[in-house]
Every structure is written in structure tokens, then in C-alpha cells.
Amino acid sequence: MSDVQTDSYLGEANQATGASDHAAQSFLVWQILRSISGAKLVQVQAVTNDGGVTPVGFVDVKPLVNQLDGSNQAMPHGTVYHLPYFRLQGGANAVIIDPQVGDIGVAIVEDRDISSVKANKAQANPGSKRIFDLADGLYLGGFLNGTPQQYVQFSTAGIAVVSPTKVTLQAPLVEVDASTSFTVNSPQSGFSGTVIVQGLLSWLAGMTGSTISGVASYISGAVQFVGSITSNGHAIDSTHQHTNSGGSGLGGPPQ
């Protein structure tokens, strides 16, 4: 039997609810099922973390699908506090993308009280007898959100790392292995330490024919040196010009 509400009746009951024992039992079962919290779309109201290198944190969320009273009037949910959120992490390795206020995600509700486990971060008895309660939710982000401005993109064109501010690589050793070429497109590049180039260098100082033939690499454009220059054990006076086989300019050690 249907228990669909009509305009003449308040609540979930209708004329058919008490028509038979089956209808009455069905109504009772559905009322119990409606009291169980499942997965809910929620919006983040507050976050304990802000992108720092910290242990995974918690969010306060608000369910987005309103409750309805017996007269079908909206009854918005209140804020649900201190739900653990998901971070992609294995041991001490993690991708840190903390939720932000306004994000839309899903709260998956545990079937038992998880408050003791949240407090101890270890196996524990349930904190109470409650079951299927939204207070025991776990937050997963990334549903119905807008276009990102900072991202790692995987596509058929390759992998793109995009940031409107800064990209930092920090490690004792950073290595780039490029089997074809390695290109840096920037109006200015800086190196704060020693630079080692394996292979010959050619300076193309804006003058035709200044390339040293047979070299493995070259610098194109004007080159300015500040300080002393040494080549093959000989000091080069950068205030004087020297001639190489290709043209004039600072082309190598003194002749």
C-alpha cells in the first residue's frame, strides 16, 4: 500500500496507512528507515587546517538537502561539527589538499558512535549506543564544485602542474630526466649556488658567426659576467674582447 502524503493529511500517514496490518507495519518500517542517516551532500562551514604540513583535521558541515515537516515546510539542518575529512595518505606520504569553507562534499555516516576512536586515533568501544547518526559522519570532498585555479591535470597531452602563485620542489636531490629536450620559458632565471654544465658551451652574444662549431650546448643572446672568469686555468679579463674562429666578442681564453 502507498503511504504517499496528500494535502488532506499531515505527516507521512494517509487514508491507506491503517487499512490493513501489512499497511500499518509497512508504515512503521518506513518511519524507522527514515530516521537512519546515510550519505548526505554537505557544505563545509569551517575547517581546522589551512594547507599546512599538519595531521589530517576536521570539518564542520551543513547538510544541503532540507528536511520537511508534516506540512511539507522546509526545515534546514543545523551544522554538524567535527567530522574527520579524507586525505590521500600512506604512512608519512600524503597529498595535502585541505577542504575550504564553501566546498561541497559528502558525509558518509558510520553505523556506530566513533567519538572514542576520533579522540584516541586507535581501536576503542563506541562512545554511546547511538547508531546511524550524522554526528558520526566522515567527510569526502569534491562534489559539485567549481573550476579550479590551482591544479595537477592528467590528460592525453601529458601532466600539467599549474599555480597562480608559486611551485616549489624541495628535496636533497632533484633530478629531471628528459630523453629529448629540457626547456625553461621564463623572462628571468636564477641560480643561487654553483652551476655545473657538462659539455661545451657556446656564447651567441647577439653577433652573427660567433658560434663555436661542434658544441653540445649554447647560450643565445647577450651575456654579462660580473666577477672573475676562468677558462682552462687562464683568467679572462671580461673588460677586453677576444676573438674566436667564428667572430668577435668574449669567445674564450686569451689568445
Rank of each mutant, 00 (worst) to 15 (best):
M1H: 12
S2V: 03
S2E: 09
D3H: 15
Q5T: 02
T6P: 04
Y9R: 04
L10Y: 12
A16F: 11
A16D: 09
D21V: 13
A24I: 07
Q25G: 10
V29H: 06
W30V: 01
W30L: 11
Q31D: 07
R34H: 14
R34L: 10
S35A: 13
I36E: 08
I36P: 04
S37M: 11
S37K: 09
G38M: 12
Q43D: 01
Q43E: 15
V44M: 06
A46T: 11
V47Q: 03
T48R: 10
G51I: 02
G52A: 09
V53S: 06
P55A: 13
G57Y: 03
D60F: 10
Q67R: 12
N72P: 01
A74T: 13
P76V: 09
Y81T: 15
H82G: 06
P84G: 01
Y85Q: 07
R87V: 11
Q89Y: 00
Q89S: 10
G91V: 04
G91R: 04
A92Y: 11
A94D: 07
I97H: 04
D98L: 04
P99G: 06
G102T: 02
D103C: 05
V106S: 00
V106C: 06
V106E: 02
A107I: 03
I108W: 05
E110D: 14
S116T: 13
G127A: 10
S128C: 05
K129G: 13
I131A: 14
L134G: 01
G137H: 00
G137Y: 01
G137V: 01
T147C: 00
Q150M: 13
Y151N: 03
V152M: 09
Q153N: 15
F154E: 01
S155R: 01
T156D: 15
V162D: 02
V162A: 08
V167Q: 02
T168L: 14
T168N: 15
L169C: 03
Q170N: 15
P172I: 08
L173M: 12
V174Q: 13
V176Q: 02
V176T: 08
A178S: 15
S179E: 07
F182K: 07
T183Q: 12
V184G: 04
N185D: 13
S189E: 06
S189Y: 08
G190A: 14
G190Q: 14
T194V: 14
V195N: 08
G199L: 01
S202F: 04
A205Q: 10
A205Y: 02
G206W: 06
M207C: 08
T208E: 13
T208F: 08
I212G: 06
I212F: 00
S213I: 03
V215Q: 09
V215M: 11
A216V: 00
S217C: 06
S217W: 03
S220I: 10
G221R: 02
G221S: 08
Q224L: 13
F225G: 00
G227M: 08
I229R: 05
T230P: 00
N232C: 09
G233T: 09
H234R: 10
I236H: 06
D237N: 15
S238I: 03
H240N: 14
H240R: 15
Q241C: 06
H242M: 07
T243I: 14
T243D: 12
T243C: 07
S245A: 15
S245T: 12
G251Q: 06
G252I: 00
P253I: 11
P253C: 05
Q255N: 14
